[in-house]
Amino acid sequence: MTKLVVVSAGLSVPSSTRLLGDRLAAATAAHTGAEVRVIEVRDLAVEVAHNLTSGFPGPALAAALDAVTEADGLIVVTPVFSASYSGLFKSFFDVLGARDQDALAGKPVLIAATGGTARHSLVLDHALRPLFAYLRAVVVPTGVYAASEDWGAEGLPERVERAAGELAALLPTAAGRPDAALPPEAAGRPGAERPGAAERPAPPAARRAEPDGFTVVPFEEQLAALRG
């Protein structure tokens, strides 16, 4: 089954960041039937900090990093702190990247953020998008920003739906390729009619030859490459 993971970095309980993550996940799952798992980074805050000093994740963080690495698609949601993603949100992806720099390579990611005012909405494009581009994720064109006022205004459901459709188009389906079973009303998403959509880079798991999870380049090839 398609695995969709939500990484939510909200700090309060209940949290509007989590609420936005849930809305996006539900809309995406409606297209794909994906199995959704939510990671509350707040619950991992201490292990994230320890990972920064000790160099390895504790058990709960390791399980979360595995879930993210193995996901078919990601929805990431952060509150805006000091004009950017929260430090905890960034630290989570810092330890993920330190553990496996290819963890997000080729992985479809929907970026989202929440804030007190709409004035910070470009955080999606000046902070989150470059971060996930660096991690070599495939970031869908529509990011979703929800200011407090958006929860009582028009427009948010449409943006959620458009972004979810774009993400769903990149997720594998039961037919074995992205988008095969999508309803026509989800059209307008990039990738839906694009012939190359099914040829996106394989997720990291598919590139690993050794059963123990390591990629091994035979030594002769490594030596030969130096002599070439």
Partner: peptide, 13 residues
């Protein structure tokens, strides 16, 4: 590893 995980967590892991 100072100022990180507790001695107890570190010995367990």
């Amino acid at each position: 590893y100072g100022h990180g995980p507790s001695l107890e967590d570190f010995t367990a892991q």
